[in-house]
């Protein structure tokens, strides 16, 4: 803690910004919904800053952040075990390890997503944007589109699978090059 607070804050924000998408994806993979992931992510960010004094600069920040995030996820699961269907400790540990192991691949996938989104037919792309827009609700979106929530969920699922295939293709194409 020899650096002045402002420098420390700057250093933290820079490291945090660089790792944030990876940590967020990590948290999301261990929790049932985006809302859950967002709640836990807020806590993770605060703890990271609180503990930043203990962070050694030679450590890998992302790795450190994953550790903190895993701890937060586990306590979230413990608190909700009774009223929510959450993964058990064993699965969470396994997914956390795997998530960390594949971090680079997942990052490359996120990077490839933009191109894949552009390749989607306009109708599907618009649907993704509407469904993931801030404050969007699937039931009201379905009403608006003259469809049902269930049909919309199915459509979105198919689109996510298409995007997963597309990003896989992009990644293997890049590896071959």
């Amino acid at each position: 803690m020899s650096a002045p607070p402002d420098l420390k804050q700057q250093q933290f924000l820079r490291l945090f910004m660089a790792s944030e998408p990876a940590v967020r994806a990590f948290v999301r993979s261990l929790l049932p919904t985006l809302n859950d992931a967002n709640d836990v992510m807020q806590e993770v960010a605060v703890v990271l800053w609180e503990k930043f004094a203990e962070y050694e600069t030679h450590e890998d920040f992302r790795r450190w952040a994953f550790g903190v995030a895993k701890f937060k996820v586990l306590s979230w699961q413990r608190d909700r075990m009774r009223d929510r269907h959450v993964f058990g400790l064993e699965t969470t540990e396994l997914l956390a390890a795997e998530s960390e192991h594949h971090a680079t691949r997942l990052e490359a996938q996120r990077a490839a997503l933009q191109d894949c989104l552009h390749k989607l037919p306009t109708e599907q792309r618009d649907l993704v944007h509407s469904a993931y827009a801030p404050g969007a609700r699937i039931d009201s979106l379905a009403r608006h589109l003259g469809s049902t929530a269930m049909a919309l969920y199915k459509k979105l699922h198919r689109i996510r699978l298409l995007l997963a295939e597309c990003t896989q293709r992009e990644l293997s194409r890049k590896t071959e090059q």
């Binding site: 994806a25 997914l95 996938q109 996510r160 896989q168």
Partner: peptide, 11 residues
């Protein structure tokens, strides 16, 4: 599974 949720979060 990880890739699917990764996309969900990224979107």
């Amino acid at each position: 599974f990880l890739e699917y949720l990764n996309l969900d979060q990224a979107l």
